[in-house]
Amino acid sequence: MENIEAKQVIDRLGGTSKVAALCDIKPPSVSDWKKHGIPKPWRKFLLSAHPEAFQPAGQPGQESAAA
């Protein structure tokens, strides 16, 4: 089963390869997050670095995060 929040965050940050590069890890690890969720330490890092990626759809500022 797919983890919807993780998939949305990864997509908003530019996709699997971009997130892997941002975290200095391999893309298959990030792909696993789409199934099992973002591990807590990486979630905290990404939330701190890119809080806009975690905003619910339709929230102000969400459009600029995708651009």
Rank of each mutant, 00 (worst) to 15 (best):
Q62H: 06
Q62S: 05
A20S: 10
P51F: 12
E52I: 07
V19S: 07
G37W: 10
V30C: 01
A53E: 07
E5D: 05
S17E: 14
V9N: 09
L47E: 15
D32L: 10
G14D: 11
P56G: 14
R43L: 11
A53M: 01
T16K: 15
Q8N: 12
Q59T: 15
D24H: 13
A49V: 08
K35N: 11
H50L: 08
I38C: 04
K44A: 15
G15K: 11
P27S: 06
K26T: 11
L22R: 10
V30M: 01
M1R: 10
D24A: 13
Q59P: 03
E63A: 11
K34N: 05
G61Q: 05
W33Q: 04
A65D: 01
L46C: 12
K26C: 00
D11Q: 15
A49T: 03
E5R: 14
E63Q: 06
K18Q: 12
I4D: 04
K26H: 07
F45L: 15
I38W: 06
A6N: 01
L13T: 10
A67E: 11
I25N: 02
W33I: 01
F45I: 15
S31A: 12
A57Y: 10
S31L: 02
P28W: 09
H36F: 09
Q62Y: 02
R43G: 05
V19E: 10
P28I: 05
K35V: 01
A21L: 08
K40I: 05
G37K: 06
F45A: 12
A53P: 07
I4M: 08
G61N: 06
W33V: 02
L47C: 08
K34A: 08
Q55A: 13
T16G: 01
Q55Y: 14
A53G: 08
D11M: 04
V30P: 06
S29V: 03
K44F: 10
A21H: 05
L47S: 15
G15N: 03
Q8R: 15
E63K: 10
L22I: 11
K40P: 00
L47Y: 09
S48C: 04
A65E: 04
T16A: 10
L47W: 06
E5H: 06
Q62T: 14
W42Y: 14
S31M: 00
C23V: 08
P27D: 02
D32H: 01
P60N: 11
R43S: 15
A66I: 14
F45N: 08
K7R: 15
K26I: 08
P41A: 07
A66R: 14
V30T: 05
R12Q: 13
K7T: 15
I10C: 07
K44C: 03
Q55T: 12
M1D: 04
E5A: 09
